[in-house]
Amino acid sequence: MTLASPTSRFGMARYRWMNIGVIVGSVLLCLLMLPARLPGMELLGVTPSWLLVWIVTWSLKRSPWEGAIAGFTLGLLQDAMTSHYPTHTLGFMLVGFLTARIQKQRFIQEDFVSVALIVFGMVVLAQTSMACQVTLHKLLESQSLYPALTDIWKQHQRIVLSSAILSSLWAPILYYPLNRWWTYFERKTAPPGN
């Protein structure tokens, strides 16, 4: 119980900084992947939703509020890279919140297949929130430049299917290393005796 020596405290701080580095670095990597079109990562002009996979990975072992805040932050970042309307923040916040809730109830085991399934469902949710915003804009704004409602939802269908398939297939590539690191980090920084 008397392990709180200066060295271990120093070690803890070092792990904390490394964790911040991992978080910032992985988000940056996801952001840089967004405009890129690498072979095997494109289906009908749609690419995996990397930030959504990151939010799901983050929220699996955290509280719903942490998930929602991460969703909001990353939503702002993706809005910056595309356009400010329709916003990604709403969908991503919902994704972070719900992913954390699912895990709380322990219905789902933690493995690649269930993570891929969660990602699949969450992509549908996030893209539907985008389509709803576009639909609202079309219905409320008389000068709206968006196409007719049938076209919006046809586009939604195309995007949802390709994005959900691609994102869930590519999810382990992000989930595995990040999950490994956070498990390791928690073990290292857990208070002694636990």
Binding site: L32, L76, A80
Partner: peptide
């Protein structure tokens, strides 16, 4: 403070239309 920092930097990048990220890209 980390949370505030993260939100502030996300907001800053949002205001700059992600110019730093595209430069890095």
């Amino acid at each position: 403070s980390l949370l505030t920092l993260a939100l502030m930097s996300a907001w800053g990048i949002h205001q700059l239309n992600a110019a730093p990220i595209y430069e890095l890209y």
